[in-house]
């Protein structure tokens, strides 16, 4: 898997690019704005330790403030993170998107490089992403009613986005084979306002 992109006739390492961009105070733009960056491929990049002087970092929590290209994140265990978005940051919020879709109150997981000033230069940020094991309790045209443990959830079916996989088969937009009582894995984006989930993919089991 490649961790670099062609730029000006030479290979440009992605991690080096994002840390350089962070130091230089790059403005907020989605990775796709770079053109040469394949956002999906960038998400899949595992962020290896290419340079021991730049340790990798991970953060999770909820955004409590945003200041231009820096997200102020309160971790779930009381820690605090300042996450820098750069031109090289890939952003997911139900789908690959741009920084403009991020809001205060959103939850996130971020992967990146630890900067000397204590911030994290983000390589990838997954906003409000959840991946929960559920049982289907009800089916409507535009949503699934689910239970996750003892909690009830609403999973919204998003046109042109939600897909299903039946018994490990290929992804399809056809959700007509879902059945009440089925166990399923739902990957989607949590809605902070009401606790529901916009479904990206539902994997139906036995």
């Amino acid at each position: 898997m490649s961790h670099s992109q062609e730029s000006g006739g030479r290979r440009l390492d992605r991690r080096r690019f994002l840390t350089t961009a962070a130091v230089g105070g790059a403005t907020i733009v989605g990775a796709s704005a770079l053109g040469g960056l394949d956002a999906e491929a960038a998400f899949a990049d595992p962020m290896p330790s290419l340079d021991a002087a730049i340790p990798s970092a991970f953060a999770e929590g909820r955004i409590v403030a945003m200041n231009r290209n820096v997200l102020d994140v309160a971790g779930s265990h009381g820690e605090r993170h300042l996450i820098q978005l750069t031109n090289a940051t890939s952003i997911w919020k139900l789908r690959t998107t741009t920084a403009e879709s991020i809001e205060v109150g959103d939850g996130l997981y971020a992967r990146g490089a630890a900067m000397p000033d204590g911030t994290i230069a983000a390589d990838a940020v997954w906003v409000n992403i959840v991946n929960v094991y559920v049982t289907i309790r009800g089916i409507a045209k535009d949503r699934l009613h689910l239970t996750h443990g003892s909690d009830e959830l609403v999973g919204h079916i998003v046109p042109d986005t939600t897909t299903a996989s039946y018994l490990g088969g290929a992804l399809t937009a056809d959700l007509s084979r879902t059945r009440i009582g089925q166990e399923a894995q739902v990957l989607g984006a949590w809605r902070p306002a009401d606790g529901a989930i916009d479904i990206a993919r539902v994997s139906l089991g036995h």
């Binding site: 899949a44 992967r111 990838a124 997954w126 994997s203």
Partner: peptide, 13 residues
């Protein structure tokens, strides 16, 4: 999530 993102993307599942 910490472990999974070390080797891949959360959105792949």
């Amino acid at each position: 999530p910490s472990a999974f993102t070390a080797i891949g993307s959360l959105s792949s599942g």
